[in-house]
């Protein structure tokens, strides 16, 4: 009984709304009548008892009253449980959302670091190319200066230029190989590994977030009136006849489902 009163009190408090005296005045209310929460609870209790008294007698009334109170408490508890579950799901969702935001920020930073690194590498490469071009031009100029003193035949010039070109190309091939290797240097691959890892983590967290969001919207359904299988009531006017009809319906269905392999 005490538990019911406490629960009723909590329910009334939960359903009540707060307002200020100023607000009431603004709405034109000059005076208010105050009804204490204990009085409200007593009135509800009294109303239930009077209603039961007028409709039921003796043991039946007590049984119905107890069953009603139990059911009321069960419903309130079920509501509290649902509220708690909802709160937990919301917390879970918020945490997952924060995690996703953090991961997104980290991913952005890592991508920026990679871009900077690649841009820096490209600049260094350009500078190196400029230096190499100048060196090639220098070597060609030196060759022609040397040839001018020797008065060579066209065939000799062709051979010496070809020799120079092959030498330059071999050197460039070596440099290109080194540049390609540089792309795979330790830092770049580390960054790429980190990004891959973050991407995976982000995908997992987003999936979890989606699952949580879906869970939150799951309709719990509406409870049936019945906790147990019912069957015909003994005081049904057509008890015997209905019992036979039920048996006939079952029998026809049993045959049907047996014949068709259920």
């Amino acid at each position: 009984m005490g538990e019911l009163r406490d629960t009723l009190k909590a329910a009334v408090r939960q359903m009540a709304f707060r307002t200020s005296l100023d607000n009431l005045k603004k709405q034109g209310v000059q005076q208010v009548n105050v009804l204490g929460i204990d009085r409200i609870i007593a009135l509800v209790d009294e109303a239930v008892h009077r209603s039961l008294k007028s409709r039921l007698v003796g043991i039946e009334r007590e049984a119905v009253a107890t069953a009603t109170k139990d059911e009321f408490l069960r419903l309130l508890k079920s509501n509290e449980h649902l509220q708690k579950q909802k709160g937990e799901l919301e917390q879970l969702k918020d945490r997952a959302q924060d995690e996703v935001d953090q991961l997104r920020r980290e991913l952005g930073q890592q991508q920026q670091a990679l871009r900077t690194r690649l841009e820096h590498g490209a600049l260094q490469q350009q500078q190196r190319y400029d230096g190499e071009n100048a060196a090639i031009a220098q070597r060609v100029a030196e060759l022609f200066t040397a040839l001018a003193g020797e008065q060579p035949t066209l065939l000799t010039v062709q051979e010496r230029v070809l020799e120079l070109l092959l030498d330059v190309v071999a050197g460039e091939r070596k440099t290109a190989d080194a540049a390609r290797a540089a792309l795979n240097d330790h830092e770049v691959s580390l960054l790429q590994r980190r990004i891959d890892k973050l991407n995976d983590a982000l995908a997992v967290t987003e999936r979890r977030l989606k699952d949580v969001a879906a869970l939150k919207n799951v309709d719990q359904g509406i409870s049936s009136l019945y906790r147990q299988v019912q069957g015909l009531s003994d005081d049904d006017t057509y008890f015997r006849r209905k019992q036979e009809l039920m048996a006939e319906i079952f029998s026809a269905n049993y045959e049907l489902q047996k014949r068709t392999g259920k």
């Binding site: 359904g221 509406i222 409870s223 049936s224 009136l225 019945y226 906790r227 147990q228 299988v229 019912q230």
Partner: peptide, 24 residues
Amino acid sequence: DHGVLYLGMDLGTSRTSVSASNGV
């Protein structure tokens, strides 16, 4: 383990109607 829901269904050519023991 929560309970038992009875359903009555009228599977019709035009409409399908359902009545349930949860009041729906």
